[in-house]
Design a protein around this nucleic acid. Structure first.
Lengths: 224, 224
DNA sequence: GCTTTCACTTAACAATTTGATAATATTATA
DNA sequence: TATAATATTATCAAATTGTTAAGTGAAAGC
């Protein structure tokens, strides 16, 4: 868990608090609890959690009020907020979601499912899936379709980029010629064996460094 | 059509497809449908939706398989995927969420609640909805539909504006021609490939600076 | 009502790049 | 060394994009 592992739970039933706390902690989250809406709001402002789990019916402020108040504070614009309540009526659920909550879960819920849902929310929050391959001084950015070597931009044509991208996706692994053909040309198109060689050559030429190794009779592999 | 609002629904029950389609469309989403897993996978690759709603039990590939396949494709790393199924057993739900889905909803679900859930997901996705994009000396104001370069107003026609706006929304990212067509023209309208080029040309001409790069065989990207 | 203007699209062609192959040279290895 | 596999080079066809001009329809202006 790189970022975002502080969770605040607000519920007026001590049993619920304990069960959920236990399960979240067992999954590596740092948990704080609150017994009512007012306490939840105060604690939230103090500890700045990454996720707030709110019961709706609580003494003091109810969950929806807390959610509203939090969303008004800039620091909580991005904070995950989830309702966890026994209230399963449609109107409340819609109201809850429209308040700016990220999910609305109804009790009873199994701890495992709860954890899965929470993991799913965090997964999207930590969207560091940039599609960048970095090996030594070589950087391949799939999204930008760009290759850099020591801050130097290297322009590759499409097939060249795809080929390098494929080989570099698993450094050290030998890709069979067949495998390469299937991955890059697909099963429909049929091209000669020499075609691969030529593209490999162009990549080697453009990169200027020797990072693609020929494994004679088998295929090619990427190595720095 | 600037906002990400394309949804693909896959379900083998025509009634469900129709009801959900209707409701989503009524809420401003652009909807495509698929009757089974295979069709869902193919259509997804073609139209590049922002959200995919998957039934689990379907002829051909089941929903979980489709989700798995999609998540393997770089272009679908960020796509919202939600299961909507009658299967309410815990194991399946956990498996679904661990496959990389963003939510797991069980039928029956009221259209209103479904819409709320979907809105909540999109709300988090479009996080930087400030309406103003500032890159170097270039300022794009989505609300005013205006573009400024070094305090100088630049008048762009609608399509030109939308195109620039799209490219500039993720500087560096290469937008596939497909992606551009889908985002700006939608899946209904079909225009020739040259149309994009011509708009690109006009933007380049009007801006006077070289900030749109052609990636041959792939698409275009914005770079200052 | 008519004309003008403008945004958008397309056709047609030019310019460019890419990718595949043939032909030949070179290398690795049994 | 003989042989199969790969490297290299040059070449050409195909794919892709750039550019210009022209057509279309809708909105604006007279």
């Amino acid at each position: 868990m790189i970022r975002g592992n502080k969770i605040l739970i607000a519920d007026d039933e001590p049993d619920i608090l304990e069960i959920i706390s236990f399960n979240l902690q067992a999954n590596g989250y740092e948990v704080s609890t609150a017994k009512n809406g007012d306490e939840a709001f105060e604690k939230a402002k103090k500890i700045l959690p990454d996720l707030v789990i709110l019961d709706i019916m609580m003494p003091g402020k109810n969950g929806i009020e807390v959610c509203n108040l939090l969303r008004m504070i800039p620091a909580f614009k991005e904070t995950l907020i989830v309702f966890l309540t026994a209230l399963s009526d449609e109107t409340t659920e819609i109201k809850g979601l429209e308040t700016g909550a990220d999910d609305y879960l109804t009790k009873p819920i199994s701890p495992k499912v709860l954890i899965s849902k929470i993991n799913a929310l965090f997964r999207r929050l930590n969207k560091d899936e940039t599609g960048i391959i970095q090996i030594g001084d070589l950087q391949i950015n799939r999204e930008k379709y760009s290759v850099k070597f020591k801050e130097e931009d290297i322009i590759l044509a499409r097939k060249e980029f795809e080929l390098l991208s494929l080989l570099a996706s698993k450094p050290g692994k030998v890709f069979l010629r067949n495998e390469i053909l299937n991955q890059i040309w697909g099963t429909e198109v049929i091209v000669g064996d020499r075609t691969i060689d030529v593209h490999i050559r162009k990549i080697r030429q453009k990169l200027g460094i020797d990072c693609i190794t020929t494994v004679k009779g088998v295929g090619y592999k990427f190595e720095m």
